[in-house]
Design a protein around this nucleic acid. Sequence first.
DNA 1: GAATCCGCGATTGTATACAAAAAGTAGAAC
DNA 2: GTTCTACTTTTTGTATACAATCGCGGATTC
Lengths: 247, 247
Amino acid sequence: MSAKTKRRKARKPARALADHRERSFDTAYRKLRELIVHGRLAPGTRVVEADIARRLEISRTPVRSALHRLQQEGYVAAYRSSRQARLAVAPLTKEDSRELYWIIGHIEGLAGRLLAQLNEEARARVAERLLVINTELSRLAGNPQTNPSRIFDLDMGFHQVLVESAAGPRLLALHAAIKPQTERYWRLYASAIVDQLGESVAEHKSIIQSIERGDPDATEHAIQRNWQCGAERLGRVIESRGERGSW
Amino acid sequence: MSAKTKRRKARKPARALADHRERSFDTAYRKLRELIVHGRLAPGTRVVEADIARRLEISRTPVRSALHRLQQEGYVAAYRSSRQARLAVAPLTKEDSRELYWIIGHIEGLAGRLLAQLNEEARARVAERLLVINTELSRLAGNPQTNPSRIFDLDMGFHQVLVESAAGPRLLALHAAIKPQTERYWRLYASAIVDQLGESVAEHKSIIQSIERGDPDATEHAIQRNWQCGAERLGRVIESRGERGSW
DNA sequence: GAATCCGCGATTGTATACAAAAAGTAGAAC
DNA sequence: GTTCTACTTTTTGTATACAATCGCGGATTC
């Protein structure tokens, strides 16, 4: 037994970083998700395993796994008749976006609540990180030529910091599963985003201040408000473009 | 085109209700989940696809799908080394239970908030349904010989009504994915539950009253409190039994 | 005696073949 | 022209074979 522990201790840490090929499942998941998010697979489009497999030049097996997961995450919807299921890209609607943003707002709000309860030092550290991101966002807000993807990444990062700093593993996982879905709506909205970015930056400031003050209620509320306002900004754009799942 | 629509309208509705065999995937998912929930697969146990497949007398394929899903739902945890993943039954800890109950409390709280905003008639209808369930629970609370499963089902039903009455599809799906996980802890706790059932019944009453009054804040809070108290009751039991993932 | 390397068994990931079921289609009956 | 029905096609679900990878244990070397 002592030998065993010693051996385990001696285990070689040189993990095979050598080969960075990703598993087919991962490519399938990643690429499919990208196709959906970027709208190359339009909402409502039927998804056929064999087609995707051909397109990605892999077998149906990993495609199937990826679709299973995407289904659970809400990117694809299943219309099933007793045994077999037909999959389609989940539609984007104003109602769905409202619910989605509403839920995320509350989940992240919970994380914010925890965050505001940390000790002062930790809060200051987080606030600092948030401030850096938000300053960059603020800077980009002035520039109308900014790449929307860059803005999305920054905003994503902002909220990621918010959650990962204090949330437990379950809350983190939940957030990780739900948050990326906003990207679909974000893309829809990309053109109009730069104009309204200032509002979001202001809301972020309010969040940061609440954290610095260590005020759980205010932090939770500020985060919720940020998402709710986001939903409204988004709603206006969807409205103006006509709601059909076209694009 | 008119012919086409007509033909669709004429489609035979006689759906094959004949054959109720479920898909292998469903049996795999159901049985595996049951094994885990009932502790026949103890927390920390490694899960090997081939073993499960043999045990259930089906091929690895549906087992694999089921494991994928159980993994995403948090029943099994994956420890992966670059490419291959090793699966194990997720451990049960006091910390995890606290986070789980905390999250559910808030998610259901959201549903309760929506519920309390319905019109009076709808609220009354829901309150009535809740009252029926809670009365039955109250009745069972007096009887020390009650089957714990019966109590679990009733409580599950109570919370189900709470959510399905007003929540949108996403919130519903989220709840459906998370809520069943409490069953693992509930089983752990089953012996001690009957003693403390009275408390839960009282909390339920408070929830029902808030709904009848149409008070969103109170409803949300009451639901949160119900879950938080549940977590505490559970925590005491786990504590007293020693926390190791034994059973 | 301890650390390192190598090879084998165990286990996961992928591809393919096959079975089953549903949707579409054409044709017959009225 | 419509409706029911039998057939064909498409697509999903399952089984199995194969490849890649991991972990463990023994052999080797100093």
